[in-house]
Simulated assay, not measured.
Amino acid sequence: MSEVNRLERRKARTRAALLGAARTFIAEGRTNAPILEITQAADVGMGSFYNHFASKDELFQAAVEDALTVFGEALDRLSGGLDDPAAAFAQSFRLTGRLHRRHPELSKVLLHHGLSLTGPIKGLAPRAREAIGRGIDEGRFTVADPELALVVTAGAALSLAQLLHDRPERDDAAAADQVAEDLLRMLGVPAREAKELARLPLPSLDAFDLAQSRELDTEEPPRRPGPLRWR
């Protein structure tokens, strides 16, 4: 391996450590923590921080975007190959409901910045928007306003996540399946079919590997407009 490749891999590991630490701080609601505390948690030097990020705001924004992207790409791996948009929508939502308990830290990151589910940041929003649009185009969904349908779906996902964190005794699978069924009915799927789609077998969650993150790439991600502000 060349010296250049070793340097790039070292930079990628440092960036990954900073993003991982940032996700933990966001999940714990500690966005006021100083940069020094974050770098100590990541086990990297202060100088290394500024080699990757200009500010704490930029780090936290990157951590949220990364979490959304990783979450969405994992769902893609599990939901791929479904031709029926209604079935794909139901499976994706049901898997998301189950993953709140399986990956609570990532779930809390999403909860702490829930508006990203409907905003321009890459991750879940484009996937949900595409699924709803495809369902409308193929006549599976009958909704007058796709944007409102997306907002309702995102609100249901976030509310379910909060409920599962607040009520650990709740059956996450049963709750996710019921909400998925209700959303399908809202989108225009007949009640009997919505119930069937929300009870179909799911792929194994063992295939969900959060380690396959974009944070491990050696290239810097593209900059996006509209930075978040953390206080």
Rank of each mutant, 00 (worst) to 15 (best):
M1G: 15
S2F: 13
S2G: 15
E3R: 11
R6S: 12
R6F: 06
E8P: 00
E8F: 14
R9F: 01
A12T: 03
R13S: 13
A17W: 00
L19E: 05
G20W: 02
A21S: 03
A22Y: 00
A22P: 03
R23C: 14
I26H: 04
A27D: 01
L36W: 11
G45I: 09
M46Y: 13
S48N: 10
S48G: 04
A54G: 07
D57A: 10
L59N: 04
F60S: 00
A62V: 04
A63E: 11
D66F: 03
A67E: 12
L68A: 09
L68I: 02
T69F: 06
E73Y: 10
E73G: 07
L78R: 00
S79C: 15
G81N: 14
G81H: 05
G81A: 11
A90S: 12
A90M: 03
Q91K: 14
F93K: 03
R94Y: 05
L95W: 03
T96E: 02
G97E: 05
G97R: 01
G97L: 03
R98E: 11
R101T: 14
R102S: 09
P104G: 05
E105A: 12
E105H: 10
L106E: 09
S107C: 10
S107K: 01
L111N: 02
S116V: 09
L117S: 05
T118Y: 02
K122H: 10
A125I: 07
R127A: 07
R129P: 01
E130D: 14
R134H: 13
R134M: 10
D137G: 08
D145N: 15
A149Q: 01
V151D: 15
V152P: 02
V152F: 11
T153F: 05
A156Q: 06
A157E: 04
L158C: 02
S159M: 10
A161S: 13
A161G: 15
L164V: 07
H165L: 15
R167T: 13
P168F: 11
P168K: 09
P168T: 13
R170G: 01
A173E: 14
A176N: 06
D177V: 01
D177C: 14
V179R: 04
A180I: 08
E181K: 03
V189M: 02
V189Q: 00
P190R: 06
P190F: 10
A191Q: 14
R192D: 15
R192C: 08
K195I: 09
E196S: 14
A198G: 11
A198R: 04
L200Y: 03
P201W: 12
P201H: 08
P203Y: 10
P203V: 07
S204C: 05
S204H: 04
L205V: 02
L205G: 07
F208A: 08
Q212L: 14
R214A: 12
R214Q: 09
R214W: 06
R214G: 10
L216C: 13
L216T: 09
D217L: 13
P222C: 09
R224V: 13
P227T: 09
L228E: 01
W230P: 01
W230H: 00
